[in-house]
Nucleic acid binder design. Sequence first.
DNA 1: ACATAATTACGATACATTATAGTTTCGAAA
DNA 2: TTTCGAAACTATAATGTATCGTAATTATGT
Lengths: 204, 204
Amino acid sequence: MTSPEKATATVGRKRNHKLDEAILESAIDILAEAGFDGMTMDMVSTQAKVGKATVYRRWSSKAELVRDAMVHMSRNSLNIEHLPDTGTLRSDLMALLKPHSLEYSERKLKVLAGLGSFYAGYQEIAEDAMQGIFEPWSVLNRTLMLRAQERGEISPQADIDMACEIIVAMVTYHSRIEHRVFSKEDYATLLDHILLPALKHAEG
Amino acid sequence: MTSPEKATATVGRKRNHKLDEAILESAIDILAEAGFDGMTMDMVSTQAKVGKATVYRRWSSKAELVRDAMVHMSRNSLNIEHLPDTGTLRSDLMALLKPHSLEYSERKLKVLAGLGSFYAGYQEIAEDAMQGIFEPWSVLNRTLMLRAQERGEISPQADIDMACEIIVAMVTYHSRIEHRVFSKEDYATLLDHILLPALKHAEG
DNA sequence: ACATAATTACGATACATTATAGTTTCGAAA
DNA sequence: TTTCGAAACTATAATGTATCGTAATTATGT
């Protein structure tokens, strides 16, 4: 439930539901910056330019707000466009990269990395959000690799799942740990030096 | 610096340096259980069976204690004494991991998974800690790979630096994002399916 | 050699400071 | 009659400091 429900009163001033979104967006911003424990309700209400009572009128606790903010964030996952078909796996994978930069999902990665203690109480929700963010990209990569496998470009024994996992792992590692963007050149190097040789020469 | 230094006074009662270790071990235990924000200095001193002043006499802040605890933790999970020399790169790399440290490395990954707000609030110290954990391991991995390269087991064009980076990236990704353990078996799979084939068949 | 003073570490605990979740109150607006 | 922003307020919790009586160690005096 991304927007809080409330038996709408028939009389009195109407609730401004645009504030729901403003609050959720602010929560995500601050989660990305400071993590779950670093986020305070005062920071959220200040950045959303609403009173704190307005936040608590919609969500009765910080945990519930964060839970809904994560679901809200996952909803705007990248849209699947048409699959590239250039003839080689390398250029297929690179072509998939072109539309959206790798730093596009930077904020989402930061949010997930800063979830810390929130995981303890809401592990399922957090993992759902994580999947919503990475699955689409991994699915596309996996599809392209499977196609390459079918046409004999890579080995029948190739570990496609792990290759996809390495891609995501390297992007998150560079953005969160090394604090530099995993550029398109880095991505090409990863493909040329490691992943493509491994996929081509995998043995039983 | 895993043990705090202090200009040893010539008079007075001597410091009991066994308490240093007790405090660090307690810190790791609690970090694994509760994460950075869930760990309190009172919990540490209680579990270590020392007074809180004894903790603060050695570390002037929680962040510094956590940093040293992490470095201490990583020291005990590697065989830094002797470089393995088993004849093959695969068993060399595997031998580098301590044989009976499965539970220990699980605890280690739990610790890493609970560090979210440590990164957010103490970025510089947290990065020192991460470097203290992974740098020794990467150095050893690189050395073993270079040796394998010299004896012709892997290609002269092998991208050793990126291979080492992938290892660290996968460990941190699994612990901090996916929140599941990157086990010894996972590590073996990474080597067998991706890294070793890539290193052996790398081309210009 | 022995006693005593000086000095430091120790565990325990009280304290001070600060931070934050959550509540309530206010006047204004719809 | 209800929502709004703003802000005061309460309750709680944790970091870091200070105090206290005691134990360990060294220096000094006899």
